[in-house]
Simulated assay, not measured.
Amino acid sequence: MILLFVMGLALVVSALVLLSLALNEGEGHGVTRSLALLQAMTAAPKELTEDLDRPFADRVLQPLQQRALRLGRRLSGADSAERIRRKLEVAGNPAGWTVDRVVGGKVLGAVVGLVVALLFSLMLGAGLPVRLVVVLGGAVAGFFAPSMFLYQKAYDRSAQLQRELPDAIDLLTISVEAGLGFDAAIQQVARNTEGPLADEFARVLREMQIGQGRSMALRGLADRTNVPDVRTFVGAMVQADAFGIPIGQVLRVQSSEIRVKRRQRAEEKAQQVPVKITVPLIFCILPCLFIAVMGPAAISIMDSFR
């Protein structure tokens, strides 16, 4: 019995030792495998890890924008790039806006507008015809959203150029009559004023400094805007430079004419006020006035008939 007990105890101890060795070997292999995997990831070539190190915008957004750009070029006409470049020039070249970004933004805007319109129609619970109209309208609105933005920017910039032009011409006239040259007078306007007109004059100076002629630089200023007064001023300056007419005299005439035009525009706006106020007068003011005046009389008449 003692011998059997000793043999059984030896067998149990041997089994425990073998089991512990097997567990230690398996754990060692698992740790070794993990360490080898980490070492392989850290020692991998840059060609394999650079895709993971790139930011989300470069990995996802940029390829999406490139696909939208290719699709937008197919949908747009052959002269769309030139037309968009012209719109960007008139709008003052907003920061970050390029021809490719506008073309790609049209496609992305159409997709976003379609999705938003679809969700909105589902929330309203409209029928299929109304849903199709809403979705189509959202896609069209999203497609033309970048163009509308550029149009609004160009309109605001043109209005600001028209407001700043009389003061700028007065400052040019005073500077030239004080003895400065025309280029120095433009530099004074660009330095002492702010706004799109000052930026345009500064660009004219930079173009002349890199070797472009004064007439060409001024014509470029006229091409970058659609304000008639700016075009008239540039045409007068180009003709004065070509025919040798004194700049001070031309500036004096331009200053007086632009003042007259500004006063005429103010009078035109004043004449439009009675016409524009007719609609709110009919639909908003007169009904309230009728209620206040005729209301008590109507109540008295109704009480009398009762």
Rank of each mutant, 00 (worst) to 15 (best):
S76T: 12
G77A: 05
A81Q: 10
A81E: 13
E82P: 05
R83C: 08
I84A: 00
R85Y: 14
R86L: 13
K87W: 15
K87E: 15
K87Y: 14
L88C: 03
V90P: 01
G92R: 02
G92W: 03
N93K: 13
P94Q: 08
T98L: 07
T98I: 09
D100K: 04
V103M: 04
V103D: 00
G104E: 00
G105T: 01
K106Q: 14
K106R: 14
L108D: 02
L108N: 02
L108H: 02
L108Y: 03
A110N: 07
A110W: 00
V112S: 06
V115A: 08
V116M: 12
A117F: 01
L118E: 08
L119S: 15
F120C: 09
L122F: 13
L128R: 11
P129C: 07
P129M: 07
V130P: 01
R131H: 10
R131P: 02
R131I: 11
L132K: 08
L132Y: 08
V133Y: 07
L136S: 13
G137R: 04
A139N: 05
A139Y: 01
V140R: 06
A141P: 04
G142V: 07
G142M: 06
F143H: 01
F143P: 01
F143E: 00
F144Y: 14
S147W: 04
S147D: 15
M148W: 15
L150W: 03
